[in-house]
Design a protein around this nucleic acid. Structure first.
Length: 566
RNA sequence: GCCUGGGUAACUCAGCCUGGAUAGAGUGCCAGCCUUCUAAGCUGGAAGUCGCAGGUUCAAAUCCUGUCCCGGGCGCCA
């Protein structure tokens, strides 16, 4: 289509003998932001300089000397300094609807990623700590990017990575043994989280505590103390078990779950190999890398006492990812506060002459904050996932019951959960991942406007029409699209490009914002035109059905399920 | 001090990469619309020195420089 615009403009410009090359002409062609201005536009500002004429006059004279134009265009008009090209929209809409009907769930996908095996690491909850609302952000982004990558042809391995050893576990066990040893460890997130918080508060106040913690940390690593081993194993497994329900609700299924305890040993070895290779050195007893680039600073691999830090563990993990899983691309979805760490990691992989060091990508995820400040597992200033979801589902149920008074209990439960997950996921995904989110609980209970439930509602409304309609025959080409209909169809047509864009920029918010815009236009159409019983029923039913398909695909990429009824 | 992300309507944000046609949404506020396919909706309205100052350009929220404010990070936490 673009080529037709190019050829038409080029031909006319040549007639006028203007000195401008083809590439310049090509780069000037744009798509108007407002569909009523046409499908393509050619701005004449650049020509103004060359021709020494006001841009508007240039547009007029281009249009006048154009003569006949290709029949794909219904009209070419002048508006201000712009030449606006209008396609035969009836044909565009017809083709679009036909395409969605043929491709269905595959409408919008493509082969850009060509079977690349990619590992996407995300979520990364630590054992012995709270899984709070903030964790939903990284988990949602990870699942969404996995789906987007798959939709673009890649083979994705979803990977989780949990800290089940290290100082935070040592602190937890220290506190448990000292103050809670009579309590039987139980599958209660709140209880598990509270012991960690207690430890953080008590340790700085006791003189010998940190020493005791260090000793426990050493023993966890060496596995020399059977009692500590037993506590560690038991409590660790309880944490892991508590995540099962969460991931099921969030509709994320990991292909592999790594643990720090599995990479400790190899991490230590790598650290020592790096000393031999003179990449790392021993400084004040610790094993460190001092980077040439001063902005990268120093990276500590092993502590003074020889125990391993997460830096070295990440090196070992990268090795497993590429060697054992044979991946071609590695994406890390990690908190933005770890930017320096990740940069140091990538740089070290490069120094190690790691074959695929340049195939690592980092998606920094900024904080989910409370109005009062940072949300933290350390201090206990957080909103637990389980408690929050319980409240949210309860709230969602009220709304469903109002609409559907006879609904069965199980159905109610399921619908409320889908709505709640849509609400929380969408609120996490619509915003740029690089920006802090201030989490206000009361606001997340608002289902009006630009929210997940609004999208589901639009889908349910469309479904309702389709489900109430009788037989829908083939789309007959004798329709005359009205304003809203054209707008809706043209928006749907954008979907494949949006998918590509979000894939290239690894950005789910692109899809999220699109879903909202699409739904908004649908709701406007819904109010302006009747579908069932109208004399345009055939066309409108097909249009509504196409909308359902596109929104469904779009929400799928966000990891959000749709509801036929709500 | 250095590195890094942000500063757009009362609030929360999109637009910035790739400069162009009157700067867009949502919430909240004001005024309307349910005997009609689900009102978690739709229509209209009020509301903006795009942090500030320079520069580049025919054209700057968008690019460049400086500056102020806020968040995060900078050797034995993850």
């Amino acid at each position: 289509m673009n080529d037709f615009v190019f050829e038409t403009v080029k031909k006319t410009i040549k007639k006028l003998k203007v000195n401008i090359n083809d590439n310049e002409i090509k780069s000037l062609i744009e798509v108007p932001k407002d569909y009523s201005r046409g499908d393509f536009a050619f701005p004449c500002f650049a020509l103004a300089k060359i021709m020494k004429m006001p841009p508007h006059e240039i547009a007029v004279s281009l249009r006048e000397s154009m003569g006949s134009f290709p029949s794909v265009f219904k009209d070419i008009s002048v508006e201000g300094a712009y030449l606006n090209f209008f396609l035969d929209r009836k044909k565009v809409i017809y083709d679009l609807i036909k395409r969605t009907e043929k491709e269905k769930d595959n409408f919008g996908n493509n082969e850009m990623g060509k079977e690349t095996v990619t590992m996407i690491e995300f979520s990364q909850p630590n054992t012995h700590k709270a899984f709070h609302v903030g964790h939903i952000r990284g988990t949602s982004i990870g699942e969404s990017l996995s789906r987007i990558s798959e939709y673009n042809g890649e083979k994705v391995i979803r990977a989780n990575y949990s800290g089940d050893t290290g100082m935070h576990i040592a602190k937890w066990i220290w506190c448990y043994r000292k103050y809670h040893s009579r309590e039987e460890p139980r599958d209660d997130e709140k209880w598990i989280a509270s012991i960690y918080v207690e430890a953080i508060k008590k340790i700085p106040k006791l003189k010998t505590a940190q020493k005791e913690v260090d000793e426990i940390n050493r023993k966890i690593e060496s596995k020399e103390d059977p009692e500590i081993n037993a506590i560690w194993e038991k409590t660790r497994n309880l944490s892991i078990k508590s995540w099962e329900k969460i991931y099921k609700e969030l509709d994320t299924d990991f292909n592999v779950h790594f643990f720090e305890s599995e990479v400790e040993k190899r991490g230590k070895e790598i650290a020592m190999e790096l000393v031999k290779k003179k990449i790392a050195k021993i400084d004040d007893g610790a094993t460190i890398i001092k980077f040439e680039d001063k902005n990268l600073g120093t990276w500590v691999l092993l502590r003074k006492d020889g125990t391993v830090l997460y830096s070295a563990k990440d090196l070992a993990l990268a090795e497993i990812k590429f060697k054992k899983y044979n991946i071609e691309k590695s994406i890390y979805i990690i908190g933005a506060e770890q930017s320096l760490h990740v940069t140091q990691l990538f740089k070290t992989l490069e120094l190690m002459k790691f074959k695929n060091a340049d195939k690592c990508r980092f998606i920094p995820v900024s904080e989910v904050r409370l109005p009062t400040g940072k949300m933290s597992s350390r201090t206990g200033d957080n909103v637990l996932y389980s408690e929050f979801m319980e409240e949210m589902v309860k709230f969602a149920k009220e709304g469903v019951k109002k609409r559907d008074k006879k609904i069965a209990k199980k159905e109610l439960e399921e619908r409320a959960l889908v709505i709640s997950i849509a609400a929380i996921k969408y609120s996490m995904l619509k915003q740029d991942s690089n920006r802090n989110i201030i989490f206000r609980k009361e606001e997340s209970f608002n289902f009006d406007g630009n929210t997940g439930p609004y999208l589901l509602y639009s889908y349910a409304r469309a479904s309702s029409i389709i489900n109430k309609s009788k037989f829908m025959g083939d789309l007959s080409p004798d329709f005359e699209p009205e304003d809203k209909e054209t707008q809706l169809a043209l928006k749907m047509k954008e979907f494949p490009d949006i998918v590509k864009k979000s894939y290239e920029s690894l950005d789910p918010s692109e899809i999220a914002n699109y879903s909202y815009e699409l739904s908004k236009i649908f709701n406007e159409f819904y109010h302006s035109s009747e579908v069932l019983g109208s004399d345009k029923e055939n066309f409108r039913l097909h249009l509504v059905n196409a909308f359902r398909q596109v929104l469904k695909n779009s929400l799928y990429l966000l990891g959000i399920k749709v509801l036929e009824k709500m």
